[in-house]
Simulated assay, not measured.
Amino acid sequence: MSEHELYPIGDAARRSGLSVSAVRFYADTGLIPPTGLNDAGHRMYDIDAIARLELVRTLRELDTDLDEIRRLLEGGTTLHDLLSTHLEIVERQERTLRARRAVLRTLIRQGGTTAQADLMHKLVSMTDEEREQAVDDFWTDVGEGLDVPEGFVDRLRSMRPVLPAEPTAAQLEAWIELADLVGDPAFRDAVRAYLRDAYSAPEARAMATEPFQDFIHGSSTQLMAELIAAHRAGESPRSPRARQAAARFLAAAVALSDTPLTPELRDRMADGFRQVPELLRQIAEEEAAADGPGYDDTHGRYLSLVTRINGTATDEDLDSVPYAWIAEAMRAEDPLPSQGVSAS
């Protein structure tokens, strides 16, 4: 293709990917006039005109209107600005389609009604402030009259959903379910009842105190991750790495009650840890047999949905935690008795 060569309209159409009628239309509207005419009066196009026709085709495929294209070609805007504007439009359309998909999938799964479709549309269209307010209202209502240590409900309130600017369909679906739940008085009553039964009794109130909650949701999670990592790496439960991790876990646990970590206490804690799977099974059976909803249907459901919305790693599957291996590591003597073990 020569820089100075002129091509008939058919060639210009073929090289630009447009139809002949489209090239003729852009010429008639003055958008891309022909470079000249041949002796027979037929339109001819040079390389520059064909390149501009290619650009017009690309922009039209992006749904750019002709006025915007005309401003670009006449120097009223830059290609970068035009493409940036259209990127914003496409991304906005993508978010809208993703939200619609989430609503449709949820409605299909639930066999929803017209009223439910309207509600779900409102839920996915909520602003960040409206989502924050919905969660705050939920925990304010749940905590009303709940006899638990000071600060416990505020800690629960801090575990809240944060829908990202570019949520996936799964995150939107989780938000639809959570927003529906936190606005449901029956769900609020069920969560309040679970928390009251789990933490209000005198023997259970210690679990709702700040030190215990800090251990459960903070240091114990990290320390347990260290133990699981050692197990997955094929370490022996009596290896230095496993024994040190177990010692740190035990030290952090006994620090809650200022109890010395004696060999006898270590053995009792190891025995108790080995029995965790059976205890969890019994708890699950008791909850299934109980009249009221249990953890999985109340606070556990809330936390599970928050985890999905936030895109954070889910808690370790309880069936995959190597309880017997960890118990064996706990039984091993502290590999560094002269240096002590830090609970931090």
Rank of each mutant, 00 (worst) to 15 (best):
H4A: 13
L6P: 01
G17E: 02
S21V: 08
Y26V: 08
G30R: 12
D39K: 10
D39M: 09
G41K: 02
G41S: 04
H42V: 08
D48K: 07
R57W: 10
L59H: 07
E61W: 00
L72K: 04
E74R: 12
T78P: 03
L79P: 06
D81G: 03
R92Q: 13
R92E: 14
R92F: 08
R98N: 13
T106H: 14
A115C: 02
D128I: 11
A134M: 11
V135P: 00
D136W: 01
D137G: 15
F138L: 13
G143H: 01
G143W: 00
R155Q: 15
M159Y: 15
P161S: 15
V162S: 02
V162Y: 01
A169I: 15
I176P: 00
A179G: 14
V182S: 09
R188D: 02
D189K: 12
D189H: 13
A190R: 14
V191H: 03
A198C: 08
P202R: 07
A204V: 04
M207V: 05
I216Q: 13
I228L: 00
R232V: 14
R232E: 12
E235T: 09
R243Y: 08
L250V: 06
L256G: 04
R268G: 08
M269Q: 06
G272V: 01
E278C: 04
E285C: 02
A290S: 12
R301K: 13
D317P: 07
D319N: 04
S320I: 06
W325D: 08
A329Q: 10
R331N: 09
R331G: 10
L336N: 12
